[in-house]
């Protein structure tokens, strides 16, 4: 059996590990433990009764469904953007590269009110969609019986835009270094074997980017599922329609209904853990499959 800690002449293990474990316990594990303990005291059946109600299920489903859609958009767009930033030369490339991180740096509440101001019915983009894009779309799609209200903010479209915003950098930042590491010779080899550029991109490049892209996708999904600040301003917060799960926790807390709040909180925690597991599995899988060449 391997020793718990391998012998090392390096000093400072006790101090470093001591600080790490203490902080981790006090800051992260203790509060999470309190949440889990509260849920256990409340009882499995009771928790399930809270989570099983129509309104809670609707909010959880909404959070997850829109987060999934936003993460899917970010997956596709993120790979394209990473490719453009890594491979193409154009004026202002470095500025664009820096701007990609803005959703990480801009506080979510600030993003929330800014997006609302833009996409509200009287906002710059909101008005354009209401007065031009929606009528045009409805005119073209009228034979299909599709009708679009032309409202972005205060609908699920608004939530989607906010979630796309907060998750935008993840895929770009995981995929970019992988693109930088691709040997040109691999692409050249594909060409000498007779493959068109499109074939090379689809069969050679894309599979190489996939593990990193999926990691970014899962990170962006995890972020979007739990997102609160940027969403509540633009969502409209109508129960059953545009009420996200984190908001429902806040509402229950304001009613001092801690049991219900913790039940929803635990449900979200489980979703987070599941996503974390998926991220780790993707990384193990890709490491095993690709190995080191």
């Amino acid at each position: 059996m391997r020793a718990l800690v391998a012998k090392s002449p390096m000093p400072g293990f006790g101090l470093g590990m001591g600080i790490t474990i203490t902080m981790l316990s006090l800051v992260v594990l203790l509060p999470i433990g309190a949440l889990v303990l509260h849920g256990l005291n409340f009882g499995l059946a009771n928790n399930w009764q809270v989570v099983g109600t129509e309104r809670v299920m609707a909010s959880l489903f909404l959070s997850f469904r829109l987060a999934l859609l936003a993460a899917l958009f970010n997956l596709v767009f993120g790979v394209i953007l990473a490719w453009v930033l890594a491979r193409y030369e154009f004026p202002g490339r470095r500025v664009v590269d820096a701007i990609v991180d803005l959703p990480f740096a801009l506080p979510t509440a600030v993003a929330g009110i800014a997006l609302t101001a833009l996409y509200a019915p009287n906002g710059l983009f909101g008005a354009f969609v209401r007065d031009w894009l929606a009528p045009l779309g409805n005119f073209l799609l009228s034979p299909l019986g599709v009708e679009f209200s032309g409202r972005i903010a205060y609908t699920q479209w608004g939530i989607l835009i906010a979630l796309v915003f907060v998750g935008l950098p993840f895929v770009v930042r995981t995929v970019q270094p992988v693109i930088a590491e691709i040997e040109r010779e691999v692409e050249e080899a594909s060409a000498t074997l007779g493959a068109s550029r499109a074939h090379t991109l689809r069969r050679v490049i894309l599979p190489m980017l996939m593990p990193a892209a999926l990691t970014g996708f899962a990170l962006s999904l995890a972020r979007a599922v739990g997102e609160y600040g940027s969403v509540i301003f633009i969502a409209g917060n109508i129960p059953m329609r545009t009420e996200i799960a984190p908001l429902l926790i806040v509402i229950r807390l304001e009613e001092f209904n801690y049991d219900a709040a913790s039940a929803i909180g635990i449900a979200m925690l489980l979703v987070s853990f599941a996503l974390l597991l998926v991220i780790n599995l993707i990384q193990i899988w890709s490491r095993r499959r690709v190995g080191d060449v």
Partner: peptide, 25 residues
């Protein structure tokens, strides 16, 4: 240990707040 350190990245901020309320409320 590394996974635990990364944990806060994937937990909703609202759940963080909730946990603190349940611990220190």
């Amino acid at each position: 240990l590394i996974t635990l350190i990364d944990l806060p990245f994937s937990i909703s901020p609202v759940v963080v707040g909730l946990s603190l309320v349940l611990l220190f409320g």
